[in-house]
Design a protein around this nucleic acid. Structure first.
Lengths: 149, 149
DNA sequence: TCTGAAACCGGGAAACC
DNA sequence: GGTTTCCCGGTTTCAGA
């Protein structure tokens, strides 16, 4: 299905750095014509290799400096509810079902520590949380792009 | 510093969904002229609220289906070395310095489980790892945008 | 800081190699 | 699949409010 050569890789790399970079420039840097690049980008989007064009925003600038990493044990009977909650809650940046003693790892973006407490209290009140363990990110060496929602 | 009103918030929200959406459309949806939107976007970039325009790619489509979440204890004397390693290693998607018994949480994207072993072995051989604990993401309820490097 | 008009330039389609 | 050409439309700038 996925037919990718290293030119596609280069194109993606350039667009990762700046998605607004004119295709003419991209074309110049990969050694193709604009149309060829345009067609390849179209294909990459159609194939789902590129999921979307987006912006990487600064959570700090938008008032969400606190990143909490939360291990969560979810009541078995409430797992479906937990998943739909996690999929829509605006503070939840990531949520992975993981191996090990905890069922989920949540990345939570909030304005302050009170926001963490509010979040955990809310989860418990909805019976979506058996127990949890929270760690705070003191600093970040490397981060994924962040998008508000 | 950061002067943001809810119009800026709306604009960012629209660009998050589709960074290539014509500014004329954005303008229509927020009730401003194209020029005004253009100016606001320019300001948001200048202020660092928007860090960059990028693409959200599919790690699976690019042959990296495995996401490993690794807790790492790093030798105190090697922390600077660890940080610069983590900042540049292509497989490391995220790396946070955290509170708790572990010093770092790493998100590692690799092709298969052998990739996880190679990674850990390499870290140890460079004396960047005292001990670690690895969890695998079985499924992801919610994920941040992913960019290859 | 916004609007509206004008200039410019990049993107998308068509025809062809 | 690739290139070149051409046209449409979006971005950008500027004058004015």
């Amino acid at each position: 299905m996925t037919v990718m050569d290293d030119l596609d890789g280069k194109i993606i790399g350039l667009l990762v750095e700046d998605a607004r970079k004119p295709l003419t420039e991209v074309a110049g840097q990969v050694g193709l014509s604009t149309s060829a690049v345009n067609e390849r980008v179209r294909r990459l989007v159609a194939q789902g290799v590129i999921r979307r064009f987006t912006v990487d925003a600064s959570p700090e600038a938008l008032g969400l400096p606190v990143l909490a990493l939360i291990w969560a044990a979810v009541p078995h009977a409430r797992e479906a509810a937990f998943r739909s909650f996690a999929a829509t809650h605006p503070g939840i940046v990531e949520c992975h079902h993981v191996t090990g003693v905890w069922s989920y790892l949540i990345h939570l973006r909030v304005a302050d520590l009170a926001g963490v407490e509010t979040f955990l209290t809310h989860l418990k009140s909805e019976d979506l949380l058996e127990r949890s363990e929270t760690m705070l990110a003191l600093s970040t060496v490397r981060s994924a792009p962040w998008v508000p929602r």
